[in-house]
Design a binder for these strands. Sequence first.
DNA 1: TTGTACGCGTTATCAC
DNA 2: GTGATAACGCGTACAA
Lengths: 344, 344
Amino acid sequence: MESITIKDVARLCGVGVSTVSRAINNHPDINPETKEKIMQVISEHHYIPNNSARNLKRQDSKTVAILMKGIANPFFHEMIKILEYEVEKKKYSFLLHHVEEDEDEIDVAMELEKEKKLCGIVFLGGTVGHTEEKFRQLTTPFVLCTIGLRRDVDPAICSSVSIDDVKEARRMVSYLCSLGHERIAFVAAREDDIAIGRMRLEGYRQALEENHIPFRPELVLYPEKGMNAYSMANGYQVTKRFLDSNIPATAFFAISDNVSFGVCKAIYDAGKRIPEDYSVAGFDGIEMGKYYYPTLTTMRQPCEEMARETMKILFSRIEDEKGNKHKVFEAELQEGGSVRRIKA
Amino acid sequence: MESITIKDVARLCGVGVSTVSRAINNHPDINPETKEKIMQVISEHHYIPNNSARNLKRQDSKTVAILMKGIANPFFHEMIKILEYEVEKKKYSFLLHHVEEDEDEIDVAMELEKEKKLCGIVFLGGTVGHTEEKFRQLTTPFVLCTIGLRRDVDPAICSSVSIDDVKEARRMVSYLCSLGHERIAFVAAREDDIAIGRMRLEGYRQALEENHIPFRPELVLYPEKGMNAYSMANGYQVTKRFLDSNIPATAFFAISDNVSFGVCKAIYDAGKRIPEDYSVAGFDGIEMGKYYYPTLTTMRQPCEEMARETMKILFSRIEDEKGNKHKVFEAELQEGGSVRRIKA
DNA sequence: TTGTACGCGTTATCAC
DNA sequence: GTGATAACGCGTACAA
């Protein structure tokens, strides 16, 4: 089955290629009859324009790309709906692109930039470990969403939308302390994590300090080698091991909601109850937490507002070339049934 | 920031463009020194080849695309890992592409086919409503994964990997019957669903008939207008409404695991217990079901095997042009804690 | 309103 | 081993 091109269509219609081009791109200067004829031939022969050729030629393309790191994060799914809605409201095209765990999202962005002639990029999730030089190679306006910056990167070179992970983790742990918990296990990211994993751990430490509770290394539960730190399986595994060790604790604070489901399961499997025997708190505020039993106490990131703000900043950069902005949102402590007071 | 092209690199190195092309594409006939020189200039100047131009010129590209309908389905996430692994094992490139809910996946596939010079396509999820003519327009080998075919489509024109949704739904409902359940509510897809929603409902009917239990329309719970039938919110909403109506039932069978979490939540919110007051069964076998409390009784689709078989069939079509195959897998009834026997 | 011709950045086919 | 040069399919000045 030979591929039919714009030339073939032109020949079949007895017109020039530019006329066909005008027809498919809704250009004004074209005779309606000619256009109709062309469109009919196109649909009869199932002509499909080649996007590579189009992108090669085009200058602008009015498309915004979302580069999403990791595929299975339900937290992102809720944001993407809004990001997409906002992009299309502005009459721009929307391109969702996955970045593999071992890929460098900036490299991917640079390729896409040239390939699709993007006019804006949103980075959703991923590492903070990029150097300033790396960011500078991007020629398109972009916004980091739920990603912090390295300290040595000049904030002026990019925009971001995020929460204060240190502060919000601290709030959650302080909340647990206020309910009488002192032995709070922290289900952590990898020990070498320099992104949000590190920040949430820092918040945990700060809260303990503020509440005059000694930091106990044996209460920080790191994933085993090769385990995805943000998986339910990890939460289950480390909690099981911890419970077997008989180190005392009254509460678990997991680095994400997803992980906390694994924590809960391990507690149940050990024949214990939530929250009677152990309190469990998560982080993110994904939908599943509300459906879990008991409902999960968590720190909810305001993903709708964050998504909207992300696009607002991006479009202001696209349209007005204004300076970069860094917006930090407040998270919301959602009290569920998974945490209880243990002291009057 | 001007974009640097292959010509610029050639000029900077004092060589011809074809030599640069040879260098970046790992062609054999090139002097190692020349190549090294070129690669150095490339990395210094951050040259990035334009993929549009490459795809335009290239004949083959040894890439397999996965077209995934819907982004949030956790069942697919587990398959994608394996699909990707298998593709890369064969030294092909892997391209994951999302299809919006309102897009036609075949149209998307035809565009991508031309744009990226694909050599194989996997359709993951989506509708069964395509005509034979539509399928014929695809020039690339493809496999439908977890998608059934319309009855009027000649099975010889495509390959597929799936389960027998009618049969497996029937098995689940028969299982519930065998435990003494007679009033089993079915949390259904949209009434006009012609895909798996319809098939699973058909299985439900057949099981009732086999067990000499009358089919009661009031036990089929359809989503409200505008609701995503496969969402937790839908499960919650219809179950809540049903419980409020006081129509008696002892068990719920939901069209997917995700929906069943909504069902459970509504039951808990009504002050009832699972499985003491109501049994709940799902369908798919996603990871969350094992972490839920109680663990979810479900019909597990063997996604690893299905993913592997999908790629096996696809590569046999790509490499040998063999005929099409249709493989139907057996699902596995996983007994969790969400279902109980109510009769000796 | 329409057609011709050129160029987008790359790879492939030749000669050398 | 290397360098011109012709495509690839399309959009768009520019001429008609």
